[in-house]
């Protein structure tokens, strides 16, 4: 009696409900989590604004185009954040303190079991909201008129971007099976993802290559943004392949990690 996909989905809904229920119990936490992102992204937007009080365009990008890109980077990130935040706990302490075992003694996929503890993490809502507002507002300011195909691709683009984020997080979090804690590595990867909030054209070519083909954060923001802004498909056509390969790499590392897990301590 293997649990079916439908069974997992029902369970996910239930656990998501538990997560939302928890939010009401920790209302201050929820406000802080979402608020933290409003503050951070607000300040980032402000910093971009300050840049453009001094120059009309940076590396060929106007103020509203940069904000549009920033918004595009927040949507997949927020979506990912909503579901995979528990990976931070994995990298930080679950292995180190020997608490990870609990996902292995349940008749549920361990990855699902792990992630489900933080379904609907409040911090994601802030990112999604700010991202949506930025994209819609700057899109309107730019007079953007997407084609039917572009409209149709919005959801898949955000979804693939979120999967790329999730894959990178899972990859670095899984390193903790070898190194006990991989929090610093994850922080570094997250810091690198911040590059994706600005036009790739700003950066040195080596950094551009890194962001496109090594830690493919360019596919979570820059590629979809230039597609939606200018219709250029040079990068975005690789998105399905990049998403698939990222997930494959992350999941195989996770599997290998599981098989070598050693519950430390007594």
């Amino acid at each position: 009696m293997n649990r079916t996909l439908g069974g997992h989905l029902r369970l996910a809904f239930f656990l998501g409900g538990v997560g939302l229920h928890r939010l009401t119990a920790y209302r201050l936490d929820f406000l802080l989590g979402s608020g933290a992102f409003l503050v951070r992204v607000g300040l980032q937007t402000l910093a971009v604004g300050v840049v453009f009080t001094h120059v009309p365009a940076v590396a060929g990008w106007s103020y509203h185009q940069v904000l549009f890109l920033l918004g595009c980077s927040l949507l997949p990130r927020g979506l990912d954040h909503l579901f995979t935040d528990q990976l931070w706990e994995l990298s930080r302490k679950l292995i180190q303190r020997g608490e990870f075992y609990r996902y292995l003694i349940r008749p549920v996929n361990p990855l699902f079991s792990l992630l489900s503890e933080r379904f609907f993490h409040p911090d994601g809502f802030g990112e999604l909201a700010v991202g949506a507002v930025l994209v819609l507002w700057s899109g309107a300011e730019l007079g953007l008129d997407p084609t039917a195909l572009q409209w149709a691709l919005v959801v898949p683009l955000v979804l693939c971007g979120a999967l790329v984020h999730a894959a990178v997080k899972l990859f670095f979090a899984s390193l903790s099976f070898w190194t006990v804690t991989s929090m610093p590595a994850m922080q570094a990867a997250t810091q690198v993802s911040e590059f994706a909030g600005y036009p790739l054209d700003l950066y040195h070519p080596s950094l551009r290559t890194l962001l496109t083909w090594v830690l493919p954060f360019a596919f979570t923001s820059y590629a979809p943004a230039v597609y939606l802004l200018h219709g250029s498909t040079g990068l975005v056509r690789w998105l399905p392949v990049v998403t698939g390969l990222s997930l494959l790499a992350a999941l195989s590392l996770w599997r290998r990690g599981l098989s070598r897990y050693e519950m430390t301590g007594s």
Binding site: N2, G98, R102, L104, I105, P107, V108, N109, G265, S266
Partner: peptide
């Protein structure tokens, strides 16, 4: 998963 369904576990320390 097959195993997990039919066992119950307590680790007093964790």
């Amino acid at each position: 998963r097959d195993n997990a369904r039919s066992i119950g576990v307590v680790f007093g320390q964790r």
